[in-house]
Design a protein around this nucleic acid. Sequence first.
RNA 1: GGGACCGUAGUUCAACCGGUUAGAGCACCGCCCUGUCACGGCGGAAGUUGCGGGUUCGAAUCCCGUCGGUCCCGCCA
Length: 596
Amino acid sequence: MRTHYCGELRSTHGHQEVTLCGWVDRSRDHGGVIFIDLRDRTGTVQVTVAPEGSAQVFHQAEQLRNETVLRISGHVRLRPEESVNPKLPTGTVEVVATDLTVLNSIQGALPFAVSVHDEEPVREELRLRHRYLDLRRQRMQRNLALRHQVMQTARRFLDEQGFLEVETPMLTRSTPEGARDYLVPSRVCGGEWFALPQSPQLFKQLLMVGGVERYYQLARCFRDEDLRADRQPEFTQLDLEMSFLSQEQILAINEHLVAHIWKTALGVQLPIPFPRLGWSEAMARYGTDCPDTRYGLELTDVSDLVADLSFKVFSQAVARGGVVKCLAIPHGNERLSNVRIKPGGDVFAEATTAGARGLAYIRVRDRGVLDTIGAIKDSLGPEQARALLERCGAEPGTLLLFGAGDAATVNKALDRVRQFLARELQLIPANTWNFVWVVDFPLLAWNKDDQRLEALHHPFCAPHPADVHNLAQARAQAYDLVLNGLEVAGGSLRIHSATLQQQVLEAMGFSADEARRQFGFLMDALAMGAPPHGGIAYGVDRLVMLLAGEESIRDTIAFPKTQQARCPLTAAPGSVDPDQLKELHVASTWVDPDST
RNA sequence: GGGACCGUAGUUCAACCGGUUAGAGCACCGCCCUGUCACGGCGGAAGUUGCGGGUUCGAAUCCCGUCGGUCCCGCCA
């Protein structure tokens, strides 16, 4: 049908006969001569319809609307020097049309402009409803190509490293822990249900027991939780698992994989190895387990310095086993007004949204003068003040913001304020890729709501060998890869001993029976010669989002869902025929609110 | 489950503190134009201001509800 692609034509194609297929990106009718910008996946090229040619072709060209699907035959002509368009890769040539076939015409109004020249934002619901049009636009073409490139690069790299791509079931069993499952009723086994996988975690471990040794999969995963800019109900993981490798060996392979992807997709040479940061240190310095290290604004613990103050907010927080931490903002005095850091202000709101009760502050003026609320001023002696300023690295002009309370809340609040201020004060350098491995996570964490210990990652992470006799306090041999403050991958060495797996499940409050019932198949497998193994999983959508400079993973997914987990294009989810439910032995308890 | 913001022509936006016939760019339709490339010129059509109710002499504007979308909290091992 075609001999060339639009975007690839150059002066070297001069005088060749070509046939092109594509869409009318735009056309310019000068009465006597008509120019058509013909677009395909590779770009656009100018097609010229001259009056000297066929009258029928000229007549057809006069009728064209944007997005008409065309096949055009003609010869490539070098443009006259004064008509060369330096803005276009194909700007030195044009195709003089001798034949023009309309393969499909446009009926009715287009919901939005597709042209490569059109940068106008379009309401997202409209883009999703007509995603097939949106995908034609440059931005989505680029994002899909980038996604493809990431996936292909990973496949090639992992293939070369001896990894086997293995598919695991989409219809599997529901397991406790983790997110809400998407359930699928079984017609054949009445009353029983499959779950769609939240990740291939157990299967990839079973593949290790199965002697695959190196596995990977671009795995679709499903979690029935509320959506965010970076969370969709179905998403894609690049899932890896390896046997007989140490944690350091696993991290090294992944560093090469990531460096390879960045080199291929962006031409950027990442320095490897990536820095390693202990979880405790990350929490202490940044208040989060996924720190953005592109800027400073690190947190300082001042609990010991303020424990005895008469300012009760500080001293009581410490007395109750909590902490007081400080976020020091250089030049904060001039850059942040009191209105913003006091109740009602945007900075204050960031802290309270994260659960903080308030946001104490001290403005450091010249000659050690402190500008703050009376209660703090009255409470701080000169010695204490000096120690505080020194600890926080404060200088005249510095604004100190304080969080006080239990460690989790303080960290969460100051982390949020820190990120907010970095954006507001434009402290984030452009084109910076700061990777960091966060390691030595706690194995278990206390869940206040359920009054029990639960796995921080998942129940199959191996505890640090030195910590196995105190599982409640144990570190896990787990690692997250963090890029610019976002978790892009997470993994661990796994438990390969049935006995230890049993102990960890018990520590999490599973009875022996319950553990047996839920995870018996795993423990049986571990008992039959499971090799030491471990792995990692990348959030592909998020990775592509970061590479593309997008702010939502929806822009990296061909057909994403809205925040209500709907698809405006297909109108899914939708109702089904009652007979379908009956066949599946399912009855709906849903009551339409309008009918009551 | 909760909070915030948004919804005006096919589309992107405007319309001040409630006050003339709800405007503009692009797209669309018609006419003109032989070197443009986001072509240009002249003219035209296009609106249940998401939907429902209320306040008012008067509502795109204020209030309540509702639907849809976005961001966030909870939730997401």
